[in-house]
Simulated assay, not measured.
Amino acid sequence: MTQPIRMFAAIRPDEFARLYDGATQEALGDLGDLVIGAAENDRVPVPPNVADSFDVLITSWSTQPFDPAILTGSRLKLAVHSAGSVRGLYPADVLTTGLRLVQGGAEAMAVAVAEMSVTMTLALLRNLVLHDRRFQSSRDWRTGGVGILGRSITAQRIGLVSLSRVGRHYARMVQGLGATELRAYDPYISAADATALGVQLCDLDELCETSDVLAINAPATAQTAGMIGAEQLALLRDDAIVINTARARVTDEHALLAELRSGRLRAGLDVFTQEPLDPQSELFGLENVVLTPHVAGGTVEARFAQGQIVMEEIRQFLTDGSLQHEVTAENYHRLG
């Protein structure tokens, strides 16, 4: 590229500051001219002349949806998404135009999401939230749960629905806590690769039949939608735990709610079919459920790591054209 590199960040300034710390912003500045867009109604629009005026487009959660046709032009060569899934902004068709696309946020958030999954697993195994709710409301030692026994993670059979980035981190973390019996269902990984992770592959029904904790780590795709339905949930033993920090669409939410209402299963849920979750949802108030408002990926460290990955991808692309986290026609529909 003979002309100075120009980058446009369609990201609200406050969000940009959470994603890009001082050192990363300085590194971006060393790569070329960076323009940060102005917000309109809490979102930042992508300028219609972006493809003729900029070499790199940087997007995130606060980017205003745009017509993908504006990405075709004489100059734009790279689009880098600082957040999670690219699918909300970039349809698969953009990959046929010559524009290269990067999903920069998912890898950085994977550790944080896995941490939340482990936190929910431990909280439910040790009845942490149940004790806290009862003790805080009653201020009574016995009402707070004296005599209620928890369970140790070291003795649990852990089932992983997908050895995705999050799934792999979750497996490593629970192994570090002493869990030794891990199985997974993932049609995209070889038995040898799973074994190297200390995980045994099996089919989905066997996974449900043999799991004390079922951790869902699969992205929402046409193939995974509803894959944990009433039939699979019925295979779980009484008092089994379901953890979902991935996507609600992977489960049959009505079937899961029925099991939770009955008290047969327990769950830790960070994602829901309707977000924000309806204040009238029957999930609220259930003692066997831990709920968080889709915050699993939200740590200070994860946000700054997202920005750093974006910067490093842009720098590498400008250096030799290589990318570590590229979205391609082959992996577009399988990515979270």
Rank of each mutant, 00 (worst) to 15 (best):
V94N: 06
V86W: 01
S82H: 13
L71K: 07
S85R: 01
A110F: 04
Y90G: 12
V86L: 07
V113M: 11
S117I: 04
S74L: 03
V94G: 11
G88C: 13
L125W: 09
G84D: 07
E107S: 14
A123D: 12
A83I: 03
M109R: 08
V113P: 00
S117R: 05
S117F: 04
I70D: 11
D67H: 08
P91K: 08
G84T: 05
T97C: 12
Q103C: 15
L78N: 07
T72G: 05
A92Q: 14
A110G: 05
P91Y: 01
T72W: 00
D93K: 13
R126M: 06
L124A: 10
A92K: 15
V113Q: 05
T96F: 01
A112R: 04
G88E: 12
L95H: 10
D93W: 00
L71M: 10
M120V: 02
D67Q: 10
P68Q: 13
G84Q: 06
A108G: 06
G73K: 05
V102A: 11
D67R: 05
K77A: 15
A83L: 06
L71G: 08
T96L: 09
G104W: 08
V118T: 14
P68F: 04
E115V: 04
S85V: 08
S74P: 00
D67A: 15
Y90L: 12
V102D: 05
S82K: 01
L124V: 09
A123S: 14
D67C: 07
T121M: 13
A69K: 14
